[in-house]
Simulated assay, not measured.
Amino acid sequence: MNRKIKLLWDFRGEDASETAKHHTNHLKEFATLEKLPFYEIDIKEKNPMLVSAFIVVDEMDMKIYRDALKPHRGEVF
Rank of each mutant, 00 (worst) to 15 (best):
F11W: 06
I41R: 01
T32N: 06
K21C: 00
G74Y: 14
K70R: 13
N47Y: 05
F54R: 00
T19I: 15
V56Q: 10
D15K: 13
L69N: 04
V56A: 07
A16M: 05
M49R: 07
D15Y: 12
R73Q: 12
L50S: 09
E18L: 15
V57K: 13
T19D: 08
P48Q: 03
W9G: 01
K44S: 10
P48L: 02
G13A: 05
P71A: 06
V51Y: 01
Y65C: 05
F54C: 02
R3Q: 14
T19W: 03
T24M: 10
F54L: 09
L33N: 15
T32G: 02
P37Y: 00
A53P: 03
L50E: 14
S17N: 13
K63H: 12
W9A: 00
A68T: 08
K6A: 11
S52P: 04
M62W: 10
G13Q: 11
A31T: 08
H23S: 03
H72K: 09
K21R: 13
T32R: 12
M60Y: 15
K70Y: 06
I5W: 10
N2P: 09
E34W: 06
L8E: 13
T32L: 07
F11C: 00
D10V: 06
M1S: 07
F30E: 10
R12I: 08
P48M: 02
A68I: 09
K4N: 14
D42K: 03
R3I: 11
A16G: 03
E34I: 12
T24Q: 02
E29N: 15
V57N: 07
G13C: 08
R3S: 14
L50P: 00
H72S: 07
L8I: 11
V56S: 04
E59C: 13
E75V: 13
K46I: 11
L50G: 04
T24L: 08
D10F: 07
K21L: 15
M62Y: 14
A53T: 10
I55Y: 03
M49F: 08
A16L: 04
K28I: 05
E29Y: 13
R3V: 13
A68Q: 05
T19S: 10
G74F: 15
K70S: 08
L36S: 06
K44F: 11
A20E: 09
E14R: 13
N47K: 05
L69H: 00
M62H: 12
I64S: 07
L27Q: 01
R66E: 12
L8C: 11
P71V: 04
F77N: 13
M62Q: 15
R66N: 11
D15I: 08
F54I: 07
L8D: 05
K46A: 02
H72P: 00
P48W: 06
V76G: 04
G74I: 07
V57I: 14
A68C: 11
E18N: 15
M60L: 12
E29A: 15
F77D: 15
F11V: 07
E18P: 05
K28N: 00
M1H: 10
N2S: 11
D58K: 15
D67I: 03
F54A: 06
L27V: 02
F38P: 00
T32F: 12
G74R: 09
